[in-house]
Write a protein that binds this DNA or RNA. Structure first.
Lengths: 342, 342
DNA sequence: TACTTTCGTGTAATCGATTACATAAAAGGT
DNA sequence: ACCTTTTATGTAATCGATTACACGAAAGTA
């Protein structure tokens, strides 16, 4: 069992003080070169490792940053986290992961826990957008801990965010369906209290209007992000007097459900019916009937969020710069909606 | 900007000492009940939050645990991490994520970094199994930090592990293919220096022998875990004098590649050719031609690894108990190999 | 009353590193 | 030779909380 070696142990061995050791190890210019070399050599030989906790306490910086996501086992969030980790690792930061499981209570709890753990920043995708209770967020801001939202954000003064242009995502996808000759395009919308889903819906609506098509309330179905929900929703649509001939789904899973159900009913895709999803989940491109979907460049989003954090972290004194980064969504056109192209 | 409130601030306000405040907040029985109430009330009114860094320095426990995985953006690892987080969160631990990207250097670096950051334990899936250089691992053990391997493990005295029975996974899958009437079963093997892949291969081989079939070296192709690699591999197989009629792939992605290529060549699945994969990636069940695969219960694996850690963490003085937990793999039979059943 | 417990709190050290300030020694200037 | 500046190092406070030990006051005992 190895004892923990401290700078005091090194100091004692060399008959100098811990202060000198500390300075030598930190390249303080006031140290005689010979002393520095001796200290560094001795430290190495004794297998000295700096105690980060002591450093953290003294400096007030833990070199940890907290990341809060609804859940980690989703391709999107996992990829964002990967991006964050890759960007922050070279700067010496460790990434602490918290999940909310879409529970506002957990969200608040995580915020408080991270602050109490003295993280140097928090990057999060908001769960509780509707809730007016922003107490936990202001607690973070009061402590002057940089806060950056990604993907799902909330309007709070002084908080930066990195999102994709969901409106545009909805718009280009709908436009694409129109270009493929679809004239009755339905929409699977998610939780409308979340900006992302609202914007996808608005983009969809605008594309319809801009192209001389009428917006039909009946064609909008609120779904969950699940295969089952997509199946149910498509059945509702098919029972309408005038059923649609395309679906723009805000979820890849719901899109998949719709496709499975349409196939069961022998409706041919994309000939009779086109489908497009959102998120570019890995499975969309693996399917025999690959699914058209909007890519949110999660890796890039994570890296960008990390960069925004880095920009803010050393400027505690200056005025908070609220930075809003909006990434462009990219439509991946695949078989489920390709009548003209492959 | 809120000042940081410490126990000294509370003490000053109440004209007592910080020691008394600390004792009151920690339910020390030696404190007069009236004092305790007063302190707690005052602390709350002043919005006092304990500084975990100071606590960590004093106690030597950071309440952080480190998790090292090859990458986080894979369904398997993300799910394991979810399991770990869910199990450890109620115990007050925060989870720090590190990725190796399959790079042994990063693995060592991560181990040292985590120890320097004073984590209370490390849960990891090993990247560098072959490497004899176990220096970093012993460094961890010397520091008496509990270490638990999951999925990919290494034989090191005193280190517990949670794995699945890969041999059995290989065995039951191969047996299933035999039961479906396949007589020439090929195998896509991964990196054989990793126990998991070696054991899947051995299970495959044993199942062949136990069922009176001959093991054919030519039928074993070393693939990477990618669609492309699966395509290349199946083409090699099809050019053999006696091509196989089934593949047990140790990777779902390679299995998918094989399926795509077989379809291109108009070989009917499962009638003429059966395919089974490993890992139960989400896409395997979403495909129109769903893919038979072995589930590794990642969530359970994560929880189990966390529990093994919890058992060890408070027993630093007792002899290290080396615990080997082996979870049972579960074969999910789907269309890609179902001639008899659905 | 005098003596022993018990109770509640204060004093001060500790965890390990950093750093403002102090100081002794060496170097430089006239 | 004497004074000033520079250089290298030591002293001690600090970050915030915990805790062994000390001690005065209150309570219990004979």
């Amino acid at each position: 069992m190895s004892e923990k070696i401290t700078i005091y142990d090194i100091a004692k061995k060399l008959n100098i003080t811990a202060a000198t050791v500390s300075r030598a190890l930190n390249n303080n210019p006031k140290i005689k070169e010979s002393t520095r070399e001796l200290v560094i050599k001795t430290a190495a030989s004794m297998n000295y490792k700096q105690n980060k906790l002591a450093l953290a306490l003294k400096s007030g910086r833990s070199n940890n940053i907290g990341v809060i996501v609804p859940r980690i086992d989703s391709n999107f969030f996992a990829s964002v986290i990967r991006g964050i980790e890759e960007e922050l690792h070279p700067h010496g930061y460790q990434v602490i992961i918290c999940q909310t499981h879409e529970d506002p209570k957990r969200e608040n709890e995580n915020l408080y826990t991270l602050i109490d753990a003295q993280v140097d920043g928090i990057l999060m995708s908001v769960t509780d957008v509707a809730n007016e209770n922003t107490g936990a967020f202001h607690y973070v801001l009061e402590k002057n801990v940089p806060l950056v939202f990604f993907d799902r954000s909330k309007h709070i003064d002084g908080v930066s965010s990195v999102t994709i242009n969901d409106f545009k995502g909805g718009y280009i996808t709908t436009k694409h369906l129109i270009d493929e000759g679809c004239s009755k395009i339905a929409h699977f919308s998610g939780d409308q209290s979340l900006e992302i889903f609202k914007n996808r819906f608005l983009g969809y609506k605008q594309a319809l209007l801009d192209n001389g098509m009428t917006f039909n309330e009946e064609y909008v179905i609120r779904t969950k992000s699940s295969v089952e929900s997509g199946k149910e929703a498509v059945n509702v649509l098919l029972q309408l007097k005038t059923p649609p001939d395309a679906i723009f789904s805000s979820s890849d899973f719901a899109a998949l459900g719709a496709i499975q159900e349409l196939k069961d009913k022998n409706i041919s895709i994309p000939k009779q019916f086109c489908v497009a999803g959102f998120s570019n989940e890995p499975f969309t491109k693996f399917m025999e009937l690959s699914i058209t979907s909007v890519d949110q460049s999660p890796l890039e989003m994570g890296k960008m969020a990390a960069r925004v954090f880095l920009e803010q972290v050393d400027k505690t004194d200056t005025i908070k710069i609220e930075k809003k980064v909006v990434l462009a969504p990219e439509l991946h056109i695949r078989k489920s909606s390709s009548r003209t192209t492959i």
